[in-house]
Write a protein that binds this DNA or RNA. Sequence first.
RNA 1: GCCCGGGUGGCGAAAUUGGCAGACGCACAGGACUUAAAAUCCUGAGGAGGUUCACCUCCGUGUGGGUUCGAGUCCCACCCCGGGUACCA
Length: 834
Amino acid sequence: MKEQYDFEAIELKWQRIWAEEGDFAVHEDDSKEKYYVLEMLPYPSGALHLGHVRNYSLGDSVARFKGLRGYNVLHPIGWDAFGLPAENAAIRNKVPPGPWTRDNIARMTTQCLRMGWSYDWSREITTCTPEYYRWNQWFFLQMYAKGLAFKSSGSVNWCEECQTVLANEQVVSGRCWRDDSVVVQKDLEQWNLRITDYAEELLQDLDKLNAWPDKVLTMQRNWIGKSVGARVWFPVVDAEDLEIEIFTTRLDTIYGATFMVLAPEHPVVRNWLDDSIHGKTLRAFLEDMQQQDRTVRSAEDTEKQGVFTGRYALNPFSQERIPIWVANFVLMEYGTGAIMAVPAHDQRDFEFAEKYQLPIPTVIEPADDQAETESGRAFPDYGQLVNSGPFSGLASRVAQEKMAEFAETEGIGGKSISYRLRDWGFSRQRYWGTPIPIIYCDSCGTLPVPEDQLPVLLPETDQLGLGGSPLAKLPEFVQVDCPSCGGTARRETDTMDTFMDSSWYFYRYTDAQIESHAIRQTAVQYWFPVDIYIGGVEHAILHLIYMRFFTKVMRDLGLVALDEPVSALFTQGMVLKDGAKMSKSLGNVVAPDEIVSEYGADTLRLFIQFCAPPEGDLDWSHKGLEGSFRFLNRLWRMLFRFHRQLPSLEREAEDVSEAVGSRGQEHQSEDRKLRRKLHQTTRKVTQDLERLHQNTAIAAIMELLNSVYEYVDSTEPQPDLKLLREVLETMALLVTPFAPHFAEEMRSLLGHKVRLRFASWPEFDPELAREEEIEVVIQVNGKVRAKIVTVPGISSDEMEKLALGDERIESYIAGKRRIKLVVVPGKLVNIVVA
RNA sequence: GCCCGGGUGGCGAAAUUGGCAGACGCACAGGACUUAAAAUCCUGAGGAGGUUCACCUCCGUGUGGGUUCGAGUCCCACCCCGGGUACCA
């Protein structure tokens, strides 16, 4: 054993052995309980950053802990390799996306190996390979056949200068990030996936996800945004058969609807643009709206803007003629893209009505016990109906029921449920993604690519310049024989949203090599559900809802027998630098490589898990790394000091009394104290790891090491070597989840011939962990006035007696009247006096 | 704007259920070792004030209120920071 802790030699040595011996390769084994640890797969952006290090070190600590606890652990990794950054890099650096991505993967793989994470690399997947993405295409075809994939018009950010679609990220305050020209909204035919068919189930099944964080459940619930209300058709005056459908959650206010508002994108608006009086202003307004960002447009503090269309509708309840407006604050994506405006009882409608001087009649009055309406504001609460024809006098809730019934019998509407959730806009006018397997034939129409012709290969190209869909510019890709008539046809040139790739990859891990099918069902049956899924909280909505949706689709296709793929979710906090998300554009990325070469992977892994709780954000600072490095060195020195003297493993079974007896009685209390600390620490670390409190688990191990130093000091020159050996043995196991190379080396130095893979997590004895004495706090009027050391299990009566009898307490209560006395068993006495 | 989080010493943080606020670590200070320094080992420490120091008092978990014998923890209002907002992943 060397005196110095040579982390590099140790880490490289064990990484080699783990790989050679295949320590992390797993297979389905019915004799063991399985445990599937999944971390969100990385996007190969270039190099590992500290966010990755944090995520995967946490996952690895869980995987190694569960492995030591006897589970058959599946711990896979792969690459989310399609996406926009590769295309941006291609345009910037003139490197095609394929090679760029593959280079990044190679580099990041090396970095992962250097970190010593326990992945089963034989299951590695890369989503940009035909072996993977052909199954994206296959799934798409199944969904197309079931009507779950469909085309519809959708609006995109369009840059006239580049003649191309921009991602939201590429729009910087309304302008193109490349040439600073104004971005407009443009309608394009787009593929969609019908996630809204599953809206109710996605909402209901959130209740099954007991081991998901509440905040994620809440966010998803709000995202799905179920609202119960009614639909009503408003006939347009002087337009035969034309009716506009609205959705409202406040049918009870319909007599107060004095105008209608349509979203600028509403289809009926297009037909009114030629109106001789209003057409011009209408066209100008719509053009204006094309340049207004959608999130800004709907913001409450955004100035409400609108124009009158020149048309009127008939309020089907009051039979009043009401004007139809178009305005920025109504969105096509929500509800029906049209609202009945009730200015007296909706704040946005109120502001709009005031601005454009529309009538604001009151139809709801507060019930007697409610506050008066505030003037200058809408009254949005429930109350009692007035000026509402036959419904006047009813309470809001009752009126909603009666009015919905009325609408139904009259054939003018009825009860309805609306969701905020929109269908999944699935196509991208980009190159670096999975080609959508669709063929357009002038005579046969839209046709799916026959399954036996999959995959539709993405051609390797560097023709990425500006303008339109890159694939559309590759004739050899576009031209295809029609699978039906054999004539000349065109391929779809849009590619899939990359969220497709990450919606089912975790199934593929269970048999990553299978060529005949997307997944092997027996493998999925064995490994699923995922026992814990660990990833950044920034994925709380999109990825995690698409993934849930996809599982339900797969279930309905008969592929899996699951409603939900993931039983427990852990959302990790972000790694920040100076209070902001680390990103290349901010130039605040910290590279782990330097840290690894200066301190080693174990120190980095240990520190990144020690310095903050895993669910909280971590503002990175180098300070403190030294402390984790010091801890490992301190442990190393203790080992070095005693490793030659420690009783050998072979003699471990021999009688303990021999060793203890020979050193007499004098240090028995120190021995007991250390043994107690050992069992307490094992208990604490075990419990903390079960609830993913890695930071406090590490703190506990540090405390134990401090106790060992104290023990060695106080028992000098005769520490109980048998006990010392037991402590060091246990510590090797306890640090394994955080510093596995160190642990492996430590065990080998202690004489173990078998590696951690064959070891077991230490047990603790609650008897030995029990404290000999406890401290009871005595408060007077809630202030700590004394502390009394006593025995565990003391009764409440005795505690009270001790408290009242304590001389320090006497001066505080003497001559005062006792009002109350609270005893918390084993902990505290509070005497309340006046 | 809307939805979801977070705010505790000089710093990262801890505090399973409402019960001693500040474990553990960093930085700092002092001591031991050393010719010296580094490293190491040991000790100290929330802030203010009093006593002349081993004791005591008050203040203290973003701000202001509230519930409670007792609040970092629960409730109400507000301020600041972060994430998401459907084409970044």
